[in-house]
Amino acid sequence: MKVESELMRGAGPLAVLKLLERGEMYGYELVEALAARTEGVLAMGQSTLYPMLYNLEAKGLIKAAWREEGGRERKYYSLTGAGKKRLSSDTAQWERLSRAMAALGVGVHAGSEPARVGMIGGGA
């Protein structure tokens, strides 16, 4: 089940920042990781991912560099200092939001779908 676009607007960048926390990744890797680690909940196509990456880059939260690896050229993205700070603050906010929603009885079921995006990085 995919997430509504309104929710995805807030969750998507945070999820991408979280994935890049461990190290640099290129576009296809990010798509695959998002789909695999969130069991398809946060899966997104190129038409969503790349504009999001360019926005994060414009805001100075990530940086990009072309590099050749294994005979193939790819554009690798990595977190900047500002990106790390944003990830930290957004994660804290997301946790507060999750707790608040849980207090209301939303998202408290233990199921196949993850309740917190913060779990993305932890599952790697």
Partner: peptide, 29 residues
């Protein structure tokens, strides 16, 4: 970047139709 993405997808075994459908709407993109 887009071409590299598709190449990675094909190398990973994706079919052309699947990759194109997964891309999303071209105009919106």
């Amino acid at each position: 970047e887009l071409a590299a993405h598709f190449r990675d997808a094909f190398n990973a075994g994706s079919g052309e139709m699947e990759a194109i459908e997964g891309f999303g709407d071209a105009a919106t993109a």
